[in-house]
């Protein structure tokens, strides 16, 4: 087993996730795409953990899963708030950060 096969899978997932984040309008779909990115990172961590026979990779993958849970929780709360205020979760319409 090549190390690269895992890393490439991770890279592909990551880029698909980025594509999703950049093209989706729906806030929930953006959050899902972010999950893809996080999973790509996790694959990387676990693969290197196995490669180096080190537990750190898996441990940090677990931490990232926990962080992802937190992120989805807060992210969904924000999406809900946007929805409640605007009756839409189209993130392209949210431009409150305009300077």
């Amino acid at each position: 087993m090549y190390l690269n096969q895992f890393l490439f899978l991770s890279a592909v997932l990551f880029c698909i996730g980025v594509y999703g984040v950049l093209t989706r309008k729906n806030g929930v779909l953006v959050l899902m795409s972010i999950e893809l990115i996080l999973n790509a990172v996790n694959i990387n961590l676990v693969a290197f953990g196995a490669f180096n026979a080190d537990l750190g990779g898996q441990v940090f993958a677990l931490f990232i899963i926990a962080v992802a849970a937190a992120e989805v929780g807060v992210g969904l709360a924000i999406v809900l708030l946007i929805y409640r205020n605007r009756r839409s979760i189209d993130v392209t319409e949210a431009d409150l950060m305009k300077g």
């Binding site: 895992f6 899978l9 694959i43 676990v46 693969a47 953990g49 196995a50 990779g57 993958a61």
Partner: peptide
């Protein structure tokens, strides 16, 4: 499933 292949069952 990829995790399992990599031997990270708990993950």
């Amino acid at each position: 499933a990829v995790y399992i292949i990599l031997g990270a069952e708990f993950a």
